[in-house]
Write a protein that binds this DNA or RNA. Structure first.
Lengths: 349, 349
DNA sequence: TTGTATGCGTTATCAT
DNA sequence: ATGATAACGCATACAA
């Protein structure tokens, strides 16, 4: 258990140091550790003793140089504080770990520069592959620089017109339908729909599903997938001349927006669900604690992460052996009815 | 922009491929890219064209082999879904990125096996250093295997009797005092204190602070730092023969426990803060959305992550030049008063 | 059962 | 201004 006291660090031992101390060749050291060839009990004992004494651990980059792979993969997310992505991360990590892969979690903060710097990890082969769940539509350029060159799987978002990349997403359209039908069944005839960024397939599909399922009139507002945006959009609407204009329900593009809506309602002195029913999307942890607790469309986030990672590791292991076939997984969503939705009473003020 | 269509991947280009295509030596390629030596404009142009054409990016592990370092660091956390750690991660990542380091986020799920596997990342020099915020007391063995050999900084938790390791934590004791004083000022004379794991310095210090500041009688219950534990402990107490035994307030060891307490109260038909005031610790995102919103002691989580990473990168860059001096940073906490605490009325039932 | 020598892709050293 | 070659730490083909 030799370790330096007092702070000055010692150079890590190399395989040569171990071999010298044990009085054998580096080949024997290598094979003792890998078990790929028989080693005499005496040699093995000497090697193990030397390894312990020096605290030797093989340098990964030297191994990688041989094998060409690092057995580490990455997951790109836009915001790790969003519970939806945190849960995707958990699913991805569990599977990666099961498969003997390490997982790097990369948080882009929706910053293209940072995203780009993380993409360099795969270009420089620091990692073997990547699950891209950055919650944004990567530019065609970025996509092209990766496609066909490195193992990449998309999660959460998917892309129209790109057939050669595997993706795992929830069934956003079905979720929108669920939300629309739910509000319709509660007797609502006028609703506000808060949508996310217009370039995101997920946002588009949710909206489309809602529009197809909700028979009443819909007021549309577009914003960002966060609480501040949800709050601002509703506050703006309330403050406008026509106000909510008879709307008795809101379908928020995701839970964060819905949380913002709840805040805006409280600030405006309106009550949920009495004055306005609210439906979110995702089912993040906060949704179970709000007042009232949020009715929402649950995405199987953990499963999305898990599946995406399954595909990725599959692609990596069959890497250059055979052309890979793109998959498109659609996972089922589920309506979680809680307190933020109720029967439509009279039109709000 | 050459990329393979149809799935079969091409071998990444090496520096030799670039040199051959450009009609120069690998030395010139290397220097063109690194800028460490002058290269004629013609050579440079030829090299750049070849690099673009082949999509060449230097293999990181080959560089690492030379330099011995990877310019990547890691952050170890127990649960990325806990907003407290997510925020630490954000702080750590922002600073790492600013300093030109990549950050690997490692989620241990409080699993010692997984933690151990992540520690191998540093032992094998896949990363240059690590911020350990795993929310647990690492065994002496684990600690010894790292101390003095690799750059490690502790965040959130600290350790008694270990003088040669830098750590950055909030002032847990002061936080406990803040909570105790707050409840005392509201007129509470009997409180329940839910503590976290007894081997955690953070938990111990919070409890000690609370005990020193709260003049009344305190019922103590120990559990885990999660919602399920907080919920179970309070439910148990309520169901016991003596019930809450006159207690009008609860100090939960952290916010997750406090969220559990809120759930247990709702399930038992008790109201917060009317029947029971609740104070948490951390100020996670959920605390701003609960009903009522949670009074809590805010830790500067972002700053903790940022500071810890600052120290780590400092240690790395002065690595074997001079013996490093251990630091012990204590960051100030702040009481955030919201709706879950109120003047003590009569004792709950 | 063990050891020698080569190669992995890059940077650094030393020539030219 | 450029190039040949050693060196980094390991795995492995080949030799003994």
């Amino acid at each position: 258990m030799a370790h330096e006291r007092g702070g000055r660090r010692t150079q890590p031992a190399s395989i040569y140091d171990v071999a010298a101390l044990a009085g054998v060749s580096i080949t024997t050291v290598s094979h003792t550790l890998s078990g790929k060839r028989r080693v005499s009990p005496e040699s093995e004992a000497r090697v193990r003793r030397a390894v312990d004494q020096l605290g030797y651990v093989p340098a990964s980059f030297a191994r990688n140089l041989q094998s060409g792979s690092t057995h580490v993969v990455a997951l790109l997310v836009p915001d790790i504080r969003n519970d939806f992505y945190a849960l995707i991360a958990k699913g991805a990590e569990d599977l990666a770990h099961q498969s003997g892969y390490g997982l790097i979690l990369c948080n882009t903060s929706s910053d293209p520069v940072r995203e780009e710097s993380y993409l360099d990890l795969i270009r420089s082969r620091f990692i073997d592959g990547m699950v891209y769940a950055a919650g944004s539509h990567p530019t065609q350029l970025r996509l092209d620089s990766l496609r066909g060159r490195f193992p990449v799987v998309f999660a959460d978002e998917t892309f129209y017109g790109v057939s050669d990349v595997t993706s795992v997403t929830a069934d956003h359209y079905a979720g929108g339908v669920l939300a629309g039908r739910h509000l319709a069944e509660l007797g609502h005839t006028r609703a506000v729909m808060l949508t996310g960024p217009g370039n995101l397939v997920s946002s588009l599909e949710r909206s489309q599903g809602f529009e197809d399922a909700f028979p009443g009139r819909i007021v549309r507002r577009a914003g960002a997938f966060d609480a501040a945006s949800g709050r601002a959009l509703i506050a703006e609407l309330i403050a406008s001349p026509e106000g909510l204009d008879g709307a008795t329900a809101v379908f928020a593009g995701n839970d964060l927006m819905a949380l913002g809506v709840l805040t805006a309602l409280r600030e405006a002195g309106l009550r949920c669900p009495d004055d306005l029913s609210v439906v979110g999307f995702d089912d993040v942890r906060e949704a179970g604690y709000t007042d009232p607790r949020l009715t929402t469309v649950r995405q199987p986030a953990y499963e999305i992460g898990r599946q995406a990672m399954t595909h990725l590791i599959g692609e990596i292991s069959t890497h250059d052996r055979r052309p890979h076939v793109a998959q498109l997984d659609r996972l089922a969503v589920e309506l979680v009815v809680r307190g933020s939705t109720a029967e439509s009473a009279t039109a709000a003020r």
